[in-house]
Design a protein around this nucleic acid. Structure first.
Length: 232
DNA sequence: GTCCAGGGCCGTT
DNA sequence: AACGGCCATGGA
């Protein structure tokens, strides 16, 4: 059982997922960079349901501070009230300020400058910031930076355990496993699209079927899943 | 009332 | 290296 095979089944079943959800019209109107909204979303969604993140992002837009300079100029205590619905607001307010200050101070708030470099260099810089771990860094690279980086999350780990696809479940092991297999089967110029859709499809699968309390009956992967077969 | 959600940090072993 | 506690809201 290989990731490419899983991807094809999920894509045929669920179709294109259109991630990352961002209101580009808003950014056109406000002459702002939609990539920063993705960076904000990647931090706010840490261990948090997306509908709560949406509330927080709407709140940021309502206060008209959804860009790097305005965030950095927002007082910490003010910011944490604004993002309150996303939960963990103390740490997340701090994290938003950390990354915004980093990009403002080192790249003059210019996301083209920030992203137009070697992937590994950007990734290491993101990981060096307090509050940015591997999943958040990779989500930013893939969905904001349009870089071919496969994002691993709790759902991906759960899927690997249940099928099972992989026994070693460290972040890097799973990421390498998916990337190697997909790199063999797709052209390099297709990888950003594949990684984008695949991660979103795994989230879709995990929300609808491969939940903590799984709903295996109509799961598109149940023929290939040991977890399902062991139920009988 | 209980469980859970698109993690990461920090202290302990 | 691996694990547990912690952080917080709001919907099911």
């Amino acid at each position: 059982m290989q990731p490419t095979y899983i991807y094809k089944i999920l894509y045929n079943k669920f179709g294109k997922q259109n991630w990352w959800p961002v209101d580009k019209e808003y950014h056109k109107k406000n002459n702002s960079d939609f990539r920063f909204e993705i960076i904000v979303g990647a931090i706010l969604t840490q261990n948090t349901a997306w509908f709560n993140v949406e509330k927080a992002i709407l709140s940021i837009k309502k206060d008209d501070i959804l860009d790097i300079k305005n965030i950095t100029e927002t007082n910490f205590d003010t910011l944490k009230i604004i993002i309150r619905p996303s939960g963990f607001f103390n740490q997340k307010a701090k994290r938003l300020l950390t990354i915004s200050n980093y990009i403002r101070n080192n790249f003059n708030s210019d996301l083209d400058k920030f992203f137009n470099r070697e992937i590994k260099q950007i990734r290491n810089e993101l990981l060096s910031l307090n509050g940015i771990g591997p999943e958040t860094a990779d989500s930013i690279l893939l969905y904001a930076g349009n870089k071919p980086v496969f994002v691993v999350d709790a759902y991906t780990k759960r899927l690997c355990e249940r099928i099972p696809l992989k026994t070693k479940l460290s972040y890097d092991d799973i990421q390498n496993f998916f990337e190697k297999d997909l790199n063999r089967n797709y052209k390099s110029e297709e990888l950003v699209y594949i990684y984008n859709e695949f991660h979103a499809l795994i989230v879709k699968l995990a929300k609808d079927y491969c939940k903590k309390k799984p709903n295996c009956d109509n799961c598109p992967l149940n023929n290939n899943c040991k977890f399902f077969k062991n139920l009988f």
